[in-house]
Write a protein that binds this DNA or RNA. Sequence first.
RNA 1: GUCCCGGUAGCUCAGUUGGAUAGAGCAGCGGUCUUCUAAAUCGCAGGUCGGCGGUUCGAAUCCGCCCCGGGACGCCA
Length: 628
Amino acid sequence: MSSSDPISILSDRFRAAIRAAFPQLTAEIDPLIAPSKQAQFGDFQCNAAMSLAKQLASKPRDVAQAIVKHADLGDLAEKLSDASIAGPGFINIKLRGDSLGSLLASMDGPSLGVEPAREPMTVVVDLMGVNLAKQMHVGHLRSPFIGDAVARTFERLGHTVLRQNHLGDWGLNIAMTVARLIEMRDAGTLNLDSITLDQLDAAYKAAESSTRRDVDGLAAARKSGHPKAIAELEAQVDGATDAFNRARQTLVKLQAHDPDTFGVWQRIREVTMSVCLAVCERLRVNVTDEHSAGESSYAEELAPMVADLEKRAVAEVDQGALIVRVDQPPRDAAGNPAWEPIKEPCLVRKTDGGFLYATTDVCAIRRRVQKLLADRIIYCIDARQNLHLRQVFAASVRAGYATNPRTGRTAVMEHAAFGAVLGEDGRPFKTRSGDSVSLQALIDEAVDRAAAAVRARNTTISDSELRATAETIGVAAMKYADLCNDRSRDYMFSFDRMLAFEGNTGPYLLYAYARIRRIFEKARERGVEGSWSSAAFRIAAPSEKTLALALLPYNAAVARVAETLQPHHLCQYLYDLAGTFSTFYDQCPVVDAPDAATRDSRLRLCDLTGRVLRDGLSVLGIPTLERM
RNA sequence: GUCCCGGUAGCUCAGUUGGAUAGAGCAGCGGUCUUCUAAAUCGCAGGUCGGCGGUUCGAAUCCGCCCCGGGACGCCA
């Protein structure tokens, strides 16, 4: 299919021109086409002459002249001449007046100019790390927001996407909680049938602290010699040791699927998952139960896998633990290492024979590549896990687990790392008392604030519509505020800013879309319907041209998100589009346009803008509203 | 100590992979509603791009050395 993005078309034309002018250049050529920053220089510019001059050992302006001579821009842009060359060798390009209309027309189809991937791949996206028996809090926000947006981007491009919710649902901490709950149930202080996640969370914390042995405190007390303090701390350590041992016994029972123990565990899982999935649904994050792939699901595979690693000497014993060294990657024929060397080895078995989270993660890669046939695995996880993930990736490659059985190629594994969520004081987001804020409370507040804002501007809206509208606006505000930043940075969580309805926010984009919908409602009231859909685009007014230019690079924006795993590039595109639309809206009457042809052209322009906004927001996982 | 992020307007952030005079939004100042939603729009003001060197026609961007902030560094997950 032919592209509708002028940068893409111009790149092709200039690449051909450069090839023709300099046949001696064999390497790949980047024609460096960019929009002009200032209108006086035209619409676009080619910056390739300067860098090529270096390779060709000639003068940049001579190179530019040769490019200009060979460039055929057809009916897209005005013919180039020596006057098109400026400064050290910039080539300025001015689109022809009628070309924007035909570019828009070529974009105006179901795909909105988005080109499907040439080689559809299977992409696994790891996008949530919920732990059993723990209340969801602000720290659980970014992974599903970013991960779902990335997943949707790949889906939009025609790839097969498999979301994975890597649940923390196994291990000693969970067993500890199970032991605690059984004790409470047997003591009659707890009804497991009606237990809530908050109660589970409390039990988890209690279990955790009851097994923490204060050996440092005891040592200090012994040193200072206070008999009472020593006695208390001895009792504490003994008690904690008992609790710890009970937890270990419970873990053994759990692993053996002892009916009572396993039943309690299942109950914990049920309660946690129902909250987790309800939150996902409310946040419009496409994660359902079928995406669950908990640590427990790997439990049976760990021992055989580790035996395989040991047998093939991929892993070796070091200081009692079993490790996979990743400091000396094999090199291919060209001398490129299979991964960047990492000094710290990857531990896959503890001295006591137990497995670690790295073991499970390697096992997950093995399943994702060998069974799910992943070509690419994307981890949307906290930046602090970076070293751990790099080790796990390297160990998997070394073990051969990351080699896709269908293609024979090593799956591409990437860490889409993100920073912390900070409060407005610049410190990690917490309540005044220092607790983490529950996700439910956070969403409720965003929605409440959105409701108040809608009510303040619209007194006639029904309560049910108000609720639905506020829900959409509140969630859009939260998601957009997260996604519009470079994910690798820490980001500042501020209700005031995300719900300000001004500037680069979710509500601003929703508002732009709602205004477009209102134009069509108005048009229908006037009896104008349908006739515009086949109208010719007549791009005349400056704000029409700006809007058209903002519209065309939609494909590039989506493609860029897939390339960089950075949804903020799409946010930037959409914000720019909404902004240019607002200016157009202000300056160009649509329904009351001076003549029918202009009106129909503008209606079609509005329709295209609205569909791109809706589609782009849907790629981010944000639904639109017909009215606000 | 080693490694990974980050440092751009008073605040929150972009910056198309090295291009022309570094851009938005808040906050500040001043315009624009009998008109398709003013939740908008237009303008003004605001900068040693952490610092110093280097690479070249050209650096916020690449390289080196520092400074500051955050994080991670074998038997927790």
